[in-house]
């Protein structure tokens, strides 16, 4: 019995054990996808692979964190506890930071001077652009959310239920506010109001003053809200988000009152993507719907070939969708036409 059990368990002992979704980033010329053993650069026009990193697969190296694209570099962490800077041109390694003790699941953020890389080892690592460590911030739980950098302040959602503001140069805590539930997505920053909006696994969306950390209001839909997995967005004078059950809300950003609500008809964990006069909602089952901003009427609906958990990315005139299924990435034009699908070759 022990032998059989050990063999079953032993089959899992060949590398990091984790189930993730494609992490997607894009600019006008290319899309970058982290998934399983590679980071891919894909030509935005043709949908073809430009390069992959590393060149050969390793059972120990897994990527799920979306790459960060800045200044000709691709910054991405992996599940071998390493954070690397690659050339966006050819995928060649610039440097590797390997002092972390846990996995990099979250997308990093950069202001051009510092790179903020959250880790599951309960630390946020602030690196200089040459890969040297500037400071670390420690918490009681790991970090899964992308930090937000506004001028000289880093705002970061923590799994320990806190929203934290840090001085980007020193890592000093400016304020730390406890919210309801673990925070698994980045806050949305509204410059006009100086407010942050963040959802949580505590089934609430909270507005927080970005200067003081004071809670401005909290919305839980009278206890009916489910977990909020993605960053809210602001358009048409509303703070807009979905909960896990697929309810989409447009709230008054000043007081959290409901301006409108909509039902996506299925579970939604990806965030909403606002376009010029419409917005995109992708259900987990791969149903992609574009709604009019003005009357929330559906404009077009498509079905993606697999499950979708991550927020679609707009770059140029294309919508990129990371897919957990038969394809890895699909590109649609703004009229809902599938431009290409990308499936990695061997």
């Amino acid at each position: 019995m022990l032998a059989l059990t050990a063999l079953v368990l032993g089959g899992c002992a060949m590398g990091p054990r984790a189930d993730g979704t494609p992490g997607v980033s894009a600019d006008e010329s290319a899309a970058y996808v982290s998934y399983q053993q590679f980071v891919y650069k894909i030509d935005a026009a043709a949908g073809t692979e430009v390069w992959r990193y590393p060149q050969s697969a390793s059972a120990q190296v897994i990527f799920y964190a979306p790459p960060t694209i800045a200044d000709g570099k691709v910054y991405v962490g992996d599940f071998a506890n390493r954070f690397q800077s690659l050339s966006s041109e050819n995928g060649i390694v610039d440097w590797i930071f390997s002092e972390a003790k846990g996995w990099f699941e979250a997308k990093a953020a950069t202001d051009g001077t510092y790179i903020i890389a959250p880790n599951l080892d309960r630390n946020v690592y602030c690196l200089n652009v040459d890969g040297s460590l500037a400071w670390t911030y420690s918490s009681e739980f790991g970090f899964m959310a992308e930090p937000v950098i506004i001028e000289d302040v880093v705002y970061i959602s923590s799994m320990d239920h806190h929203l934290v503001a840090l001085d980007i140069a020193t890592g000093d805590v400016l304020w730390k506010t406890k919210l309801n539930g673990a925070l698994v997505s980045a806050p949305y920053y509204d410059a006009e109001r100086g407010a942050l909006f963040v959802g949580s696994m505590g089934k609430v969306l909270t507005a927080v003053d970005s200067q003081s950390g004071e809670i401005l209001w909290a919305f839980n839909n009278n206890g009916e809200l489910s977990s909020v997995w993605a960053t809210p967005v602001m358009f048409d004078g509303n703070i807009v988000f979905t909960d896990e059950s697929g309810k989409i809300f447009g709230l008054n950003p000043d007081d959290g009152s409901v301006n409108w609500a909509l039902d996506a008809g299925g579970n939604v964990t990806a965030g909403i993507l606002p376009l010029e006069s419409s917005f995109v909602v992708v259900r987990e089952d791969g149903t992609l719907t574009v709604y009019n901003m003005s009357d929330r009427a559906p404009v077009w609906t498509r079905t993606v070939d697999g499950e979708v958990y991550s927020t679609p990315v707009l770059a140029g005139d294309k919508i990129f969708i990371g897919v957990k299924g038969n394809v890895l990435l699909q590109a649609y034009d703004l009229n809902g036409n599938l431009v290409w699908s990308f499936t990695p070759g061997k």
Binding site: A18, D19, G20, T21, Y64, W103, E105, L120, G142, M144, N180, G181, A182, V184, S200, M201, G202, K203, S227, W229, E244, T269, Y309, K324
Partner: peptide, 21 residues
């Protein structure tokens, strides 16, 4: 659970009488 996807799946396995938050 070490990734958001694993957390999502875990949360859905929790019986209603346990407060997942």
């Amino acid at each position: 659970a070490a990734t958001p996807l694993e957390l999502i799946k875990l949360e859905r396995m929790i019986y209603p009488f346990l407060d997942s938050s």
